[in-house]
Amino acid sequence: MVVLKAPFTEEKIRALKVGDMVEIEGLVFTGRDAVHKWLSEGNAPPKDEVDLKDSIIYHCGPVVMEKKGSAKGGGPKKKYVVTAAGPTTSTREEPYQAGIIERFGVKGVIGKGGMGEKTRQACQKFGCVYFHAVGGAAQVLAEAIKDVEGVYGLEKFGSPEAIWKLRVEKFPVVVTIDAHGNSLHKDIEATSGAALQGIYSELKK
């Protein structure tokens, strides 16, 4: 088990290898279809709110409940609680991801189902990794989210699509694309394809 703590420096990212089981600790930003499209159209969130440099983007549309808490000044302050936060399918962001990794210096992407060739190359070139979370594990992952530090673009994108700033601890993932050109998805696709042909030829006998 590797513990990856913020700040997510290129050095720490390059030390990770495909197959590593990792627990992430620090701030991650959610982002899915609307945000990826928007970023790819040349837009960027204000840096003081969402600094994507050396960041981790999580492909996730969390279920967030609003709780009224009180701020120190006495006025009502919005407090959010995440009740479910599993990964969504990453391939939908494949057309955008490589460009976003390059332009903003993103260091990690969390999702499920893996990503393609363009992302694999961008990870290698710019020092980024793809973390695979366990699909469907909404409750385990929600428990690893310790705090919601804010949200950007709630009006613009709507709740599941907005950029949620999540403080995570012991957030469990597996590295399936590393910064050295390796992709577990590519490997397993090849080995399982070969195994399938092997089984087919046995069946003929």
Binding site: G19, K112, G113, G114, H132, V134, G135, V174, T176, L184, H185, I188, T191, S192, A195, L196, I199
Partner: peptide, 8 residues
């Protein structure tokens, strides 16, 4: 086939 949980 060796695909395994989550394709890991």
């Amino acid at each position: 086939l060796g695909i395994g949980p989550m394709g890991f």
